[in-house]
Write a protein that binds this DNA or RNA. Sequence first.
DNA 1: TCTTGTGTTGACATCGTTGTCACGATCCGG
DNA 2: CCGGATCGTGACAACGATGTCAACACAAGA
Lengths: 339, 339
Amino acid sequence: MSTVTIKDVAARAGVSPKTVSRVINGEEHVRPAVREAVMKVVTELAYRPNAFARGLSSARSFLVGLFFDQPSTGYAADLQRGAIVRCRELSHHLIVEPVDRSLPDWMAKLAATLQELRLAGVILTPPICDWPDLLDLLEEHDVPVVRIAPGQALERTPYVRMDDRAAARELTDHLLGLGHRDIAFIRGNPTHSAAVARWEGFSDAMRAAGIAVPARRVMQGDFSFRTGLAAAEALLGSGDIPTAIFACNDEMALATLVVAMRHGIAVPQQLSITGFDDAEIARIAWPQLTTVRQPNPEMAAAAISMLVGGGGSAPGPIELPYSLVVRDSSGPPPPQATE
Amino acid sequence: MSTVTIKDVAARAGVSPKTVSRVINGEEHVRPAVREAVMKVVTELAYRPNAFARGLSSARSFLVGLFFDQPSTGYAADLQRGAIVRCRELSHHLIVEPVDRSLPDWMAKLAATLQELRLAGVILTPPICDWPDLLDLLEEHDVPVVRIAPGQALERTPYVRMDDRAAARELTDHLLGLGHRDIAFIRGNPTHSAAVARWEGFSDAMRAAGIAVPARRVMQGDFSFRTGLAAAEALLGSGDIPTAIFACNDEMALATLVVAMRHGIAVPQQLSITGFDDAEIARIAWPQLTTVRQPNPEMAAAAISMLVGGGGSAPGPIELPYSLVVRDSSGPPPPQATE
DNA sequence: TCTTGTGTTGACATCGTTGTCACGATCCGG
DNA sequence: CCGGATCGTGACAACGATGTCAACACAAGA
């Protein structure tokens, strides 16, 4: 397979390389007849422009970066899936880069990457989307950025998010509607802004219902299964248990489910549990978790579109709709608990 | 941030660009004094060579492709994590590409990608590592390939694997050692060669122990939770249940766990369950799953090294060690079941 | 008919780096 | 002390595309 270059196409079509360039880039000022002739040759020779040459001569790179904190969770995988699909649609490619703040020279490493690969844009996921120094670095390098679910400095870049607060309120209302009054809450990693928003939504709903939430009903987790276990143990270990637990994500909800099971507490008969994210495990769990579906792949896809399709000027923020997913882990509170 | 080029470095160091190029590429024939002087300037100016220019002028691209079938599973995420880390160590970048055979023009799409981005190499994961037409395509494009856990045509490319068969044998021996005689098996997706190897390892061990495995104790799954549920239901739905179930991966083992729970079968007291992979869910499950740890990140990292560090000639195949992880889902069979 | 303008095209330089090759300096053995 | 090998270095031309600008064709208006 000797490589087909733009010259080959040009020669065969009887035009100059520049004209071929115009055709493949969809520029105007090419007669329809010529355009067609060139396209025909492009197809015949299966010509594909070399991305390196393009990147060198123009500024474009056809490479979009997806920057991660920990690239292993299901959340990240969801985002990645959505991003890849849209990238392919727009004939770009996705470069996945870990951003590891524990490394002393992480900024330098990242700067090196940015200078080596002039990325067409970068998508920042939580929680790194809220690191000011990272935003500074990217700004300094003139890299277009779209953030997913940012919590701070919303004016700094375009972003895609969902309304975590409203979703949490709605989920809480669901529990309240079932008759629950004694609802505990397991908070997520406070550096993730979504964790804060969810807490606020929960608080909103409880306040609106005129129910106070005592401190002993609020536990701190960090979104991990492990901390979920600890929090749930604290909530369910004594005789004084709530009738429902709102965990800030599915993983901690699952942990709560496991702890409930260990203690012989029936879900949802004695205890309702709700998660957040609609991760795969929410469906795998038994009973299946009532949760909020986050449009993760869609958010990532939208972010790619903003970066690549949007042209030069980045458009404003986008908010995507969530949806409540009521499954089997939530139900009415046990009769004796109703006051 | 105006860009620093090799010329700037050369000018400041009082040498030609070519010499700078030699230094940053670690070529010989440069006097130590000059080398140091250049390196000093490189550091001062924070110079990083432009990957596009490098890719254009040499053949190298510093981009490694990780090709996936379904990029969403935990298995894939493990591989990706290992690959990314090693890429970074070798100052390369990872491009993740889905290979979707359901698209009619998937070959053309992939060929386009290969021609646009002259990848330094490609890692093929199961099950696509066993697609002959994909291997043909890559060979045609002269792209170095390393496969992970391939099952067929082992002579075609270098590869990294673990001994699934031996691991399955060992895991089966663990169950046999606990006293189990009536062990059921849930097979994995037959297009994954690992599924076949695990079945063979299981068969080996059972045969060696002189125990016949009746057909009703063998179920077909495809590695998915869903098929695991169906298989487990078939095995546990009747009164005639085995004392142990060997599921071909953790996801199906988890499904089995769920089905057992629904039927009120205690694990491991009445039924032992073992998985395979040591996925995250194996630790999350309750009881935690006895399983085999696959060195997935390590395999991916090794693959990257073979591709990038190995230079021109690809080295031979590598086999990485697995390890048995005995947790809480396996135990001795119930007394009455012992013959 | 001569401008002027608009649309179409190609020549040429350029992006930043590396491959090739030639040149001078240094080293060695005879 | 000389000739050839080796080492260190730089000039120059790629690599494959696109940006710039000039040239040309042709239509419309003066």
